[in-house]
Structure formats: C-alpha cells, structure tokens
C-alpha cells in the first residue's frame, strides 16, 4: 500500500498515524508541506529511521525544491521522486491511503 502525507509533522500528527497503519512493504510519500518531515535534525528523524527497512520513504522533488530544500537537507533513506515517480508509485501499489 502507498501512503501519502501532505502536512508538516509540526502541524498535524499524520506521520505518526500513518506509521501505525503502514505495514511491512508499504511505501510512504511526502508531498506538499509534509516534505519538512524528511529533513535532517528534526524530532521526526528517529521515527523514519526506526521504520526504514520495513517501509520505503519517498519525497516529491518539486515540493522539496519549492521550499528551498534538496538532497543535502534530507535525512538518510529517503528517495526523491518527480511527478512521474509519484504516478508510478500509485500505479505500482494496489491501494493508496491519503492521510489528509
């Protein structure tokens, strides 16, 4: 299953709710303001690292760039995708859960 999150983790706890539901083998994609969840040195780094291996984490590149961020700002184990990559994730996963 693909999970998308679009809110900053500092604004809403969608990330922790999502992680309660993301099973082994799931993918999580951060878009819009949720891209801040993948940056280095935040209180959310640990949650991402603890789940890495079971869950694959992705971030939408154009949303990252729009916010003045790039690969060098990201914590480890996050893969950057473009919109085509986003489409592929939706197509490759039978179901998508959008944690609004």
């Amino acid at each position: 299953m693909l999970h998308t999150i679009n809110k900053s983790p500092f604004e809403k706890d969608s990330l922790s709710t999502c992680l309660r539901y993301a099973d082994k083998g799931a993918s999580v994609l951060f878009i819009e303001d949720a891209v801040y969840a993948c940056t280095k040195g935040t209180q959310f780094e640990k949650a991402i690292h603890d789940n890495h291996g079971d869950i694959k984490f992705y971030v939408l590149g154009p949303d990252l760039e729009a916010r003045g961020l790039d690969n060098s700002n990201l914590t480890t184990n996050i893969e950057i995708v473009d919109y085509k990559g986003f489409v592929k994730l939706v197509a490759d996963n039978e179901k998508t859960q959008n944690w609004l």
Binding site: Y21, D23, K95, Q97, W99, L100
Partner: peptide, 18 residues
C-alpha cells in the same frame, strides 16, 4: 486497536479519506 483496524484497511479496496 490500530493493529486490528489495519487488518480491515488491508482488506479494503477503495479509500476515501476526510
């Protein structure tokens, strides 16, 4: 508990999140 609700989610086919 979330653990059981997750099983229900896994069996579901169409998600509408509000």
């Amino acid at each position: 508990p979330a653990l059981d609700l997750k099983k229900l989610f896994n069996e579901s086919e169409v998600f509408f999140n509000f």
